[in-house]
Design a protein around this nucleic acid. Structure first.
Lengths: 114, 114
DNA sequence: CAGATATTTCGATAATATTCGAAATGATTT
DNA sequence: AAATCATTTCGAATATTATCGAAATATCTG
């Protein structure tokens, strides 16, 4: 995974509306949501939303499919996992350091490390 | 974890120099690196680097300690793990979907979900 | 084909980020 | 305390991002 790709993905998520949007799609699952439904849910004008959808699409984090006159957007879980993988990949020079299971929101960062 | 905190952390990482900087610190481990060493390693002027260090510090992703006349920066692994945790936390409405271990770079996103 | 609906593109404006040299601060040495 | 070294703050130029209405595009319905 190229560092430029990662920056684009992080940039895409580094914005209130888009983070909310992405999480909305993640929770919506494979069925996804139509652009209109998202706009309403987020309280963002259609044209603004379209801009944000384009950013996320461009970053490869979401995908588009057409259903009638609606465009349905879905989260790309693969891209997400790849991103997370990249962020921990060279952690501590390869030592085991993030054994925490998903959902475990522990905040301590004491480590024996090296 | 507040969404605003997450956005700040993502914003901090969503920039070539800072992503490289953070990864440099992650790999450097608990010993960390002096600002000067980082500046040289990244090929960035001192004042620019200082700006980026401030961003990462402000986002809580790195910490500072003084050693003589040098300021040593280290990655905050706890903040990092918290961020990753948040990003997967509500994934698929709570269904198990990212069981992949760190280092496993699988790219498929087929899921039975709901 | 005309009308209605869903969404995107355009264009202009406002807001935020990045960059880097020069000057300021803090810590060390002599 | 003066000189020196490491780093940060300031200020100002440049670049990138976000916002949203109006107009354009694409799809469906009658």
């Amino acid at each position: 995974m190229e560092s430029e790709t990662v920056v684009r993905a992080l940039s895409a998520l580094a914005q209130e509306h888009r983070l909310a949007l992405f999480r909305l799609l993640v929770q919506a699952g494979p069925d996804g949501l139509a652009a209109g439904a998202i706009a309403e849910s987020l309280g963002v004008p259609a044209s603004s939303l379209s801009f944000h959808l384009a950013q996320l699409t461009n970053a490869g984090l979401i995908a588009q499919r057409r259903d009638g006159r609606s465009l349905i957007y879905t989260a790309d879980y693969g891209a997400m996992t790849a991103l997370l993988g990249f962020l921990m990949e060279n952690c501590c020079g390869g030592a085991v350091c993030v054994p925490a299971a998903p959902g475990d929101t522990k905040d301590k960062n004491e480590r024996t490390a090296a």
